[in-house]
Design a protein around this nucleic acid. Sequence first.
DNA 1: AGTACAATCCTTGTATACAAAGTACATAGG
DNA 2: CCTATGTACTTTGTATACAAGGATTGTACT
Lengths: 228, 228
Amino acid sequence: MDHEFTVNMNEFLPLRDVVFNTLRRAILTGELKPGERLMEIHLANRLGVSRTPIREAIRKLELEGLVTMIPRRGAEVAQITEKSLQDVLEVRRALDALCAELACDRINAEGKAALKKACDSFEEATKTGEVVEIAAADVALHDIIVQATGNQRLIQLINNLSEQMYRYRFEYIKDESGHENLVSEHRMIYESIMKGDKEAAAAAARLHIDNQEKSIIRQIRIDPKRKR
Amino acid sequence: MDHEFTVNMNEFLPLRDVVFNTLRRAILTGELKPGERLMEIHLANRLGVSRTPIREAIRKLELEGLVTMIPRRGAEVAQITEKSLQDVLEVRRALDALCAELACDRINAEGKAALKKACDSFEEATKTGEVVEIAAADVALHDIIVQATGNQRLIQLINNLSEQMYRYRFEYIKDESGHENLVSEHRMIYESIMKGDKEAAAAAARLHIDNQEKSIIRQIRIDPKRKR
DNA sequence: AGTACAATCCTTGTATACAAAGTACATAGG
DNA sequence: CCTATGTACTTTGTATACAAGGATTGTACT
């Protein structure tokens, strides 16, 4: 089996961070599959570095929950179970609702302008039907809301939790039938924030996650990637 | 300046994990103070290990937000600002409320029994006035609720966020005047969960955090440890 | 006396060497 | 033929060596 990922030497970062980003990307895009072993020497050879930066990167991936350590056996890419996805989504539902509420209070004029634009861009994107474009527009929109909270810890946590589902983000966007729903959900969140209606914004954010959850769970059931 | 922490060699864990736990504990208890540099060779000598496990432990502390990396200068204990504490508490408020709601649905018979016992134990502890004992009873009670959710990700996140405030946990318990409040807040949460009243449980959990926040912020204002 | 420059030391970043443990395979015995 | 044991190999865990960058201190010159 041959992987195609490679280090990006342009980055002026410690090797451990380059390796960390590289491996994380490979895991999140599915290039490294759940259950696959991460063997230090192989990775070191492939990435052209020594074991030290590899090991340090793995420590971070470990704490992030993307790899599982097995004593004396090393790291492997964490399995994604339906349960673990539901756990993540359950937390995200609460935190996205919190984001929406906080954004109501804290978003400023330029944030509002950006949000309006992002909302329109998303609607445009759905019309093109380009999955990648839609996904990007979706991320951009949510990012504006998250950033508007000004809560660094919250921003970090949401980003981390979102990552856990990156492998499935295209799946639920591919489902064309959900597009009108996505658009109207975004509109709902957008309008609630504009009005400063925290209750409505939180409710809309929760509904948005609920629908994503349904979509993702359906995809998993159809194509159960979890081997064990 | 001399630190007294030492490794616990009884543990049958990789050294990196022993070091990680040791350093984390030292940071959370305030033994290592914000802004203090973590120099690898010194730590290695003090803990009787080589630099490798130290470095790997620091990578995890870095991702956990307990240390800050400065390029070519190494790690130092992360500063705690009032803003960062409020950020943490804002997230905890949402997640504790979520815990309370989920616990309403998911707590089982033995969980209920344990919760009742923990609630009584806490009340007992406040009567003794022993700060350490009160803190332990408080943790035990909250832990039962958190565990009752059965959501591993949520459990992990709450534990991590709680840690960020360990340095202040004694401060707000020392404040004797707040004890009746703490007891009644716990009772409120307990009863709401027993009744399965999610709304009330969530509200009580939020109130509980609100009061802790007030107490902690007051402490910080009195004794502003942040140097910069 | 103050400033600028240089040399040295300290610390991190990275690579490699060595030890221990676990696994797999092969061989021998029942 | 199946099982059990031993040996060799693979891989992690830990230590150490080496290189490079930054900071600090000392000295010389203005």
